[in-house]
Amino acid sequence: MTLNVENKQNVLLYRAKRRGRHYLKLLYQRVNPSHETRPVFILGSGRSGTDIVSHCLSKAWDVELINEDNPKAFDNWRLKSLEAVKGAVNASNATLVLFKPIVESLRAEEFLKEFQSAAVVFVVRNPHDSINSMVRFFGEAQIRAVKSWVETDFARKTQAPAELREFIASHCHADLSVEDAAGLYWLLYNSSYLFLDLQSSPRVTKIRYESLVQEPYETIRETCDFLGVKWFPSMTEEVYAGSVGKNRKPDLSPAIEKRCSEVWERLTVEKYQNSTASSIV
């Protein structure tokens, strides 16, 4: 009983500290408003580390985070419109405004075209750990999401290549397992980094989840340098490496396993890695 009380007190204290820091940041940004505010889009697949990347970067005093549940720019986890994004950027006193519309990662090119000062941080995580996490977190909803793509979204204009859409549709059968649905989900979103040719853009940087949790200082510091914001050590104090390779490989069909492995290899070999050494500022 005493332990439960202490845990509740610790949680309340943590929330109070975060809330207090949030209001201090707003005051700081109001007293020291930026002359130019730029949008940054945190993209990638679900359960790949976009939350922790956003959390780390949002600790910077000149950064504002507008998350997927924030009605300033989002409705039901999707951006209301690009006009709403512009409004949120124009209303901010921060140097950077972070948005995390990961379900709209395939719109990365559109975001960069619409906002000439924008940057994209694309987060990737190895398929086995990411798929295991999706299965635990989303369950059967993952199957419904993939079937919805095939039944509706793929009939509309989409950036995804026809061959990839056909592969996903051919594996979206009546008895689609949760593991295979998560694998197809991972495949589409992570492939977008490649088929949108984001690696060639100087306004895009890629973060590997494994690098983030195993070398947090270096990874976030490089990302801050890229974005032109000040880094400090406490930004990564809540990052832990315990989730890498923690569980067994998911039970994927051979064809989906092969495609995911091929995409992961392309995402991680050096020729496809863009450097964060140069700043976009």
Rank of each mutant, 00 (worst) to 15 (best):
A84C: 01
A145F: 10
K258W: 04
S170V: 01
V103C: 12
P216D: 06
E179G: 08
V63N: 02
R15P: 01
L227D: 03
L188Y: 15
Y28L: 01
Q9G: 05
R136I: 10
R221N: 12
Q142I: 04
V135T: 08
P39E: 06
S234W: 13
K113H: 11
L267G: 13
A118P: 08
R30P: 00
P101W: 02
W231H: 14
S54L: 03
E179N: 14
N76H: 15
E68D: 08
E222G: 08
N76F: 12
D197R: 14
F154K: 11
K8P: 00
G44A: 12
F74L: 05
E238T: 13
H173K: 11
E110A: 10
V150Y: 00
I220A: 07
S45Q: 12
F122Y: 15
V135I: 11
K230N: 14
V178D: 03
S200N: 12
R266G: 06
A181R: 05
V135Y: 10
T236K: 09
S177H: 14
S45D: 04
Q142L: 11
Q9H: 07
S45T: 12
P250S: 11
H55S: 05
A241H: 12
T50P: 06
S261H: 04
A162I: 13
S148F: 08
A155S: 10
N132Y: 00
A94N: 03
H22W: 10
A94W: 02
D69Y: 14
R125S: 04
Y240F: 09
F195V: 00
P71A: 05
S200I: 07
V244L: 05
H173Q: 03
Y185K: 10
L12S: 09
Q9N: 09
F154W: 04
R38L: 07
E163G: 06
V63I: 03
L12R: 15
K258L: 14
S177T: 15
K230S: 14
G87C: 01
A181M: 06
R248T: 12
T158D: 09
N10I: 04
G139M: 05
F137Y: 13
S58Y: 05
C56Q: 04
D251L: 15
E218P: 02
H55I: 00
K147E: 14
G245V: 04
N7L: 15
R38E: 11
Y28Q: 02
E262H: 05
V63K: 02
D175F: 00
E270S: 08
R38A: 11
V135K: 13
L176V: 00
V123Q: 09
E215S: 15
R30Y: 15
W231G: 06
G49H: 14
E114C: 01
I42H: 02
V213L: 08
Y185M: 03
L65K: 06
H173Y: 01
C56H: 06
L198D: 07
F195P: 08
